[in-house]
Amino acid sequence: MSARDRAQDRRFETAVRQNVSDILAYLERRIDPAADAADILSDALFTAWKKRADMPFDDAALRPWLFAFARNTLLNARRAARRRTAATNELRNFLTQSQSGTKPSTEGAVEIRMAVAKLPDDHRELIELVHWEGLSVAEAANVLDIPPSTARSRYATAKRLLLAVLDPAGTAV
């Protein structure tokens, strides 16, 4: 194992440790039951590890690069058999016991969720990445594998559509 490989592995692990909690949150919000997020996280990390030679050189691009593995694993998540490790099982149990994945049920929350649910899927996914996960629009574009200009356009459209439902009186800025 060369010094270069070791440096690459250290960089990969550092990036994973910095983002793993947020990646889990991303999965928790999109999986029912949320405990399944533990399995998807485990698979996504393993896949990312196998592909670590393709890590982007730019540190700022590592976060969306890792999120993309979570998203792709989520999309392919219905594998029949999944090997669970002890650590993944522990995390599953913890997520099961927590309120993970439940949705706040205030009147405003229900209204906005209904409005978001009416958005086209690609717009909804983009705006959730930006608002829920705190990614920039450019980072979300990387996760979704679309051009940043397309993401910017979709984001603007999504906001306009939401405001039309949530603020029909037109007080939007």
Binding site: F12, E13, V16, R17, V20, S21, L24, A25, E28, R29, A34, A38, L41, S42, L45, F46, A48, W49, T85, A86, A87, T88, E90, L91, F94, L95, S98, Q99, S100, G101, T102, K103, P104, G108, A109, V110, I112, R113, V116, E128, H131, W132
Partner: peptide, 25 residues
Amino acid sequence: AAAPLVAPRDERMAALLDAVVSERV
């Protein structure tokens, strides 16, 4: 604010995530 809730990010969660990362990475 309307996002689904996630599990608390406490010491227990940190330890669990560390274990998963160590196992898979």
